[in-house]
Design a protein around this nucleic acid. Structure first.
Lengths: 224, 224
DNA sequence: TTAACTATGTGAAAAGGTTCACAAAAGTAT
DNA sequence: ATACTTTTGTGAACCTTTTCACATAGTTAA
């Protein structure tokens, strides 16, 4: 099977690709960027697996869902595989992103270089605080959240990051959905409801600390 | 089987508890806190599952790894179950946490209320920037990262959060390990190495945006 | 050119995680 | 009291994900 078998990038047949696979593709992409900077031409599934603390079979299987990118006896071409990962993840383009809630977490996210590096361009900021509205934050004027629906449409926003207090998150999200946004990343610690055709992902930064806490208290077996 | 069967909280026999289960316990804990505020006395696995978008069986199975907390015909006592979750996760106590790298992300984390609410007390800050060292950030004086090992020991730090640039993260982590720290939460986009007895978790905030990007581009089937 | 080596791609097996289905135990109503 | 309802706790079945193992195809060296 060669990569042309999957001529329509984006459909991937009827196969359901698991969340873990997608997350690992993100990691491969990042590591491939590093390898590229280190000047490597090719990388084997064994090398890549070692960097990611995975098995070589896992790496090959993940990639095999999307095509056949390697050369037997040699490995994978670093730069090309990086581009392939970007294309599969949809980060070989710019995304028009808005951020709602320019508080503690929100303002940090505006300056987060990794977002920009991967094509996520935060081009609109919203807040409900009169003191912030109209002011400039890292080159972007903060808009009034009261005009959220209208402004999201007007700016042709494709993704929204929510960093407001949990108490108001559902109201905000309802407006975001009304504006026709289909992809939302939520940092508020709340269980939010969206229609079935909207992708909602939650980022819970306490979760990993809690995992560490559990691991320490239970002296949980280290993986691998 | 009643909850006394597990008198030694923390051992849980030889059963290996999966990462997903632990993460769901975090979510249960948060939701139980909300339910408690709403004044609910009891909650059934069905109710809890609905809030978390899980199956009731999943909720019951997760809890059953740790004991038997419910009453048949009635459900689970909200407040008690919340305390049980806290105890299992090890967040029914205070953790002495240090944060290294008081930059964009780092300073946001210092003020992140959820950490404090769950017992994670950030009591030491470190940076390598002479302009920051000695200054006060939200009531904590920023220390020189050059004395990291000594200061971590002195302050009896138990967990470390790393929010430094990827290029220096490994050097920092080596010092953290030298100081005897066994739990590290890393925000730097890098694959870091630690000895086998150190718990390292990575927080990659781009990952979920990339998942959304993938979902949009591939019109990936929405889950359930 | 040939032999030895390396590394992919992938069915099949194994491991791991989730859901089913039901007995058991408690609550509720009459 | 008794019948009926609710809901837990849990083996077993099912489904998903990971790992194994090997045929295949390319590289490398002499």
């Amino acid at each position: 099977m060669n990569s042309n078998t999957y001529s329509t990038v984006g459909s991937f047949g009827k196969k359901r690709i698991s969340e873990s696979t997608i997350h690992r593709l993100s990691r491969y992409y990042r590591t491939l960027s590093v390898l590229e900077k280190e000047g490597l031409q090719t990388v084997s599934s064994k090398d890549l697996a070692k960097r990611e603390k995975l098995t070589p079979a896992q790496v090959r299987k993940d990639l095999s869902f999307f095509g056949s990118f390697g050369t037997r006896g040699l490995g994978y071409p670093v730069t090309e595989l990086k581009h392939q990962m970007a294309s599969i993840l949809g980060i070989d383009r710019l995304w028009r992103v808005a951020l709602i809630g320019v508080g503690n977490i929100g303002s940090a996210l505006v300056g987060y270089k990794e977002f920009a590096r991967q094509g996520f361009n935060i081009i609109k900021l919203f807040d409900n605080d009169q003191r912030k509205i109209g002011s400039n934050h890292k080159g972007i004027t903060i808009s009034d959240v009261r005009n959220l629906e209208r402004d999201l449409k007007e700016a042709r926003i494709e993704m929204v990051i929510i960093a407001v207090p949990a108490t108001v998150a559902q109201y905000i999200i309802d407006d975001v959905v009304k504006a026709g946004i289909k992809a939302i990343l939520n940092f508020a610690p709340a269980n939010l409801k969206v229609p079935n055709d909207v992708f909602l992902r939650n980022e819970n930064m306490s979760m990993e600390l809690e995992y560490l806490s559990f691991a320490l208290v239970n002296n949980h077996a280290q993986k691998k």
